[in-house]
Amino acid sequence: VTLFVALYDYEARTEDDLSAHKGEKFQILNSSEGDWWEARSLTTGETGYIPSNYVAPV
């Protein structure tokens, strides 16, 4: 399991995006899409895309 933590708040801009709150942890499901990674929030269980530069490894 690849875990990352949000460094900043991010507000989803499309229905495919996933909002993130600073300190929230995510499981990365797919990081092969360049700057946008598919992730699952460990807080809400929701999945979507987050900007890779907004997260760091735990």
Rank of each mutant, 00 (worst) to 15 (best):
Y54L: 15
E46T: 06
K25W: 15
W36V: 09
N53P: 05
T2A: 11
Y8A: 09
I50S: 01
A20C: 14
D16G: 15
R13V: 13
A20K: 01
L18T: 02
G48D: 00
G23R: 00
W36P: 04
K22A: 11
L29N: 05
L7V: 07
S31P: 10
T47S: 09
A39E: 00
G34D: 12
T14E: 08
Q27I: 15
L18W: 02
S52G: 07
Y49H: 07
S41V: 02
N53R: 13
D35G: 12
L3Q: 08
T14D: 12
D17M: 13
E38T: 11
N30H: 07
Q27P: 01
E11R: 06
K22I: 11
D16Y: 15
Y49D: 01
D9C: 10
Y10G: 00
N53Q: 11
G34F: 08
A6Y: 03
V58L: 12
E15F: 10
N30G: 09
A56D: 05
L42T: 07
V58C: 12
E38C: 15
S41T: 00
S41L: 02
F4L: 07
S41I: 03
T2M: 12
G45E: 04
N53H: 13
Q27D: 06
V58R: 00
A39G: 04
K22F: 07
G45D: 04
A12R: 08
T44F: 01
S32G: 11
E24S: 02
T43F: 08
T14I: 06
L42A: 05
F26Q: 02
D9H: 05
A12Y: 02
A20Q: 02
G48R: 01
E11K: 09
N30L: 07
A6G: 03
E24P: 01
V1L: 13
G45W: 06
F26T: 01
S41Q: 02
E15N: 11
S52V: 07
L3M: 10
G34C: 14
V5I: 12
F4C: 12
N30C: 10
L3S: 08
L42G: 01
D16F: 15
N53A: 14
W37Y: 10
A6C: 11
E11C: 13
E24V: 03
Q27T: 09
F26R: 00
W37N: 01
Q27G: 02
P57N: 05
L18H: 02
L3D: 08
V58I: 13
S52F: 07
L29F: 07
S31C: 15
F26K: 02
I28T: 01
L3H: 09
E33D: 15
G23L: 01
T43A: 11
S32F: 10
S41C: 06
Y8E: 09
L42I: 10
V58H: 06
E24H: 02
S32K: 11
G23Q: 02
T43P: 02
D9T: 04
N53K: 13
H21Q: 11
D35A: 10
I28G: 02
T2H: 12
I28M: 04
S19E: 05
H21T: 13
T47K: 10
L42W: 05
Q27E: 14
G45T: 01
L18Y: 03
D35C: 14
A6D: 05
P51S: 06
E46N: 12
D9Q: 04
S52R: 13
L3G: 05
T2D: 13
D16Q: 14
A6L: 06
S52D: 03
G48N: 00
T14P: 02
L18D: 00
W37D: 00
G23S: 02
A39S: 01
R40Y: 08
N30S: 10
K22D: 02
N53G: 10
N53T: 10
E38F: 15
P57A: 09
D9Y: 06
V5G: 02
T47D: 02
G34M: 10
K22T: 08
R13C: 15
P57Q: 07
D16N: 14
S41E: 02
P51H: 09
V58W: 11
D16R: 15
A12V: 04
Y49R: 14
F4N: 04
A39I: 06
Y10I: 12
D9P: 06
E33M: 14
L3K: 05
G34Y: 09
A56R: 09
E46S: 09
A20M: 15
T47P: 00
E38Q: 13
T47I: 14
L7A: 03
R40C: 09
Y8P: 00
L7T: 04
P51N: 10
T47R: 10
A20Y: 06
E24G: 02
H21A: 10
Y49S: 05
T44V: 00
T44Q: 01
D35F: 13
Y10D: 02
G23K: 01
R13I: 10
A12D: 02
G34P: 14
W37E: 00
V1H: 13
S31D: 12
S19W: 05
D16V: 13
K22L: 06
S41K: 07
Q27W: 14
V55N: 00
P51V: 03
G34L: 10
W36D: 03
Y8T: 06
T44Y: 03
D9M: 04
I28Y: 02
G23C: 08
D17N: 09
A39H: 00
T14V: 06
Y8F: 12
T44R: 03
L7H: 02
L29V: 07
Q27H: 11
T14N: 14
T44D: 02
P57T: 05
F4V: 14
Y54S: 12
G23D: 05
D9F: 06
W36I: 10
R13L: 11
T43I: 10
D9K: 03
V58T: 07
E15C: 15
T47E: 08
N30T: 08
I50Q: 00
P57V: 08
E15V: 12
S32N: 11
G34K: 13
V5W: 07
L29R: 03
I28F: 02
A12C: 06
S31I: 11
T44G: 03
E11F: 09
F26Y: 04
T14G: 15
Y8H: 08
Y10M: 04
P51E: 03
L42R: 02
S52Y: 08
S41G: 01
R13H: 10
S41Y: 03
S19C: 08
T43M: 10
Y10K: 00
K25F: 15
